[in-house]
């Protein structure tokens, strides 16, 4: 209880820090920390697979990617001039809606909630015979019942991969014209 409360508090504090901080380098670091804290909480919530993935992907890869980008772009965020009232209002309304929505939700850890009872026999029991006793049910599910989602996930990664190549690859010619026009880009 104490651990989870302190992790949750830390998460909230980190999130606010990220929102307020102007130095991008620090913000990226805090994002890594946020992911890491999130991952530890997931561990408490009995989701070790997600926790490991989050730690690796969220705290690891995405931090590296962002740092790499920062190296190419610049580390300082310019202070935003526009008033924060409209975004705050939108966020407030959305948040209030969500809180309102939680009121009818099954309580945390409720073992009679539909999530736990709708599927009967549950995934753990069902997957044992289906997966021939694979101990990690999550892995089993990824490859079987939700295997198609996993295929989709792979497709997403593939899409992102070629998209990144496509976006970052510059034509030799393109670069030249760019240089000759003093990096102003081409107008319409």
């Amino acid at each position: 209880m104490l651990v989870s409360v302190s992790i949750l508090t830390l998460l909230a504090v980190t999130a606010i820090a990220i929102a307020r901080i102007g130095d991008l380098w620090a913000a990226v670091m805090f994002t890594g920390i946020f992911s890491f804290l999130g991952a530890s909480w997931m561990l408490i919530l009995d989701a070790p697979d997600v926790a490991f993935t989050e730690a690796a992907v969220g705290a690891g890869i995405s931090t590296v990617l962002m740092l790499g980008t920062l190296a190419l772009t610049g580390k300082k965020e310019k202070p935003t001039k526009s008033s924060p009232i409209v975004p705050l209002f939108v966020v407030g309304v959305t948040g209030a809606a969500l809180i309102y929505g939680t009121l009818d939700m099954p309580h945390f850890g409720d073992r009679h909630s539909p999530v736990q009872t709708r599927i009967d026999p549950g995934f753990v029991e069902k997957s044992q015979p289906d997966m021939h006793g694979l101990p990690n049910v999550v892995t089993g599910l990824l490859g079987s019942y939700r295997g198609y989602d996993t295929l989709g996930e792979t497709a997403v990664i593939f899409t992102a991969g070629i998209a990144v190549i496509l976006i970052l690859r510059r034509e030799p010619k393109e670069k030249e014209t760019e240089r000759s026009t003093g990096k102003k880009g081409k107008s319409l």
């Binding site: 989602d149 997403v156 998209a163």
Partner: peptide, 24 residues
């Protein structure tokens, strides 16, 4: 949930395709 996954496939590819435009 599958809707979400395929939505992302189509969205990500659309973002990339749009970025192919001639201008900056």
């Amino acid at each position: 949930f599958n809707v979400f996954v395929f939505l992302e496939i189509s969205s990500l590819s659309t973002y990339a395709l749009i970025s192919l435009g001639k201008t900056r």
